[in-house]
Design a protein around this nucleic acid. Sequence first.
DNA 1: CGGTTCGGTGACCCGCCGGTAACATCGGCG
DNA 2: CGCCGATGTTACCGGCGGGTCACCGAACCG
Lengths: 216, 216
Amino acid sequence: MQPPRPATEPPRRTSRLPRGARRLQLLRAAQDVFVAQGFHAAAMDDIADRAGVSKPVLYQHFPGKRELYLALLEEHVSELADRVGEAMGGTDDNRARVNGAVGAYFDFIDAEGEAFRLVFESDLRNDADVRSIVDRGTEVCVEAIAQVIAADTGADPERALLLASGLTGLAETSARWWLPRKGTVSRDEAVALMSALAWRGISGFPRVDDGDHLAH
Amino acid sequence: MQPPRPATEPPRRTSRLPRGARRLQLLRAAQDVFVAQGFHAAAMDDIADRAGVSKPVLYQHFPGKRELYLALLEEHVSELADRVGEAMGGTDDNRARVNGAVGAYFDFIDAEGEAFRLVFESDLRNDADVRSIVDRGTEVCVEAIAQVIAADTGADPERALLLASGLTGLAETSARWWLPRKGTVSRDEAVALMSALAWRGISGFPRVDDGDHLAH
DNA sequence: CGGTTCGGTGACCCGCCGGTAACATCGGCG
DNA sequence: CGCCGATGTTACCGGCGGGTCACCGAACCG
């Protein structure tokens, strides 16, 4: 799993690294620690130790703990938003869109490193910047889906957004439920099942020319 | 050393209270502070201040910050689980069950005091006890729903649980999306819309006698 | 009216951890 | 070689906040 380490992995501590490489290594180490312990329980010393380096090095690359965290958060929020965006834009078949979007959530949550916990289980949601980044990410996903719903059912924007938010919740929550139970249901089967649920639900709102009688 | 206190100290503080009443008041104060600031940002002094009392009083009623938090968490997790349980047990009509369960999530999230944030946005999820309480709560909700699904569609337990978890996610996420937008869509309309989505989805899995071909 | 009790307080302790200053090396270059 | 500027390290500071101690005063009771 680890990238090809230089065979010169001696008993020595990490040899000196150029700035760029060190920075990436620190980001990886920080992600591991933040995911495993959360923001508050993670100490800067833990992160430095995990990178085989001392604390001041961290501060040579990042101005503070919060900023380090924000960088990682931003990265993974964008990742999810991109995947969902691709699922919406990559086809004209709405059934495939649903399948793709549900798959995007499952793959994001099943990704190596459990980075999704930074996004969905952040223990820094009180921080205004964190809240703003996370909320903006879900907003992007919800809006991408709502746009398709509005276009293909004629639902007014408010209701399309509400429906879309429900679908993202369906995908996110079922993926998180499934993750520790991967052994019993395969990824493809789970995605197929949840896509079927979502599709049967949303395809029940057919195209109309005025969107006023959806909720009966 | 210090001349007598500037006697201009205005009127008395809070009147004395019997133990039980004080305890309840402290719980209310703690909930307000924990909801507004999260566990980590909340200081015991904040909670005591809000109750118009000094910190040691807090420790006469609760052994520590964590325990105080756990008491509140437990309370609200049970509340949600009870509401969902009632929605499942209160009727035989599956359409009504869906409507009731979705309504339960909306009401829980729309409740005075925003206590739902303790459950769904806890910044102490790393704590083993917190995780256990929250997970157990969602498990109870998911199982209650899954049982009905399994009984009425013949789906095997694993898949019924997965479907049920998706439905809870749909309700929870859409309710949280709706909350700050109450002004534009009424509670009843939102519940009706999301119930319709969920019902169309789940009622597409009809009763069968062997549960093996649901996910095609 | 003296004393016991119980609700309540100001002041303090101390461990943890984010952040920093001062010092140590490695390696390239003229 | 001897300098210099990056890369790293050890050791420290400071404050925030959970938790505690010694004490106070109102009421109640005999």
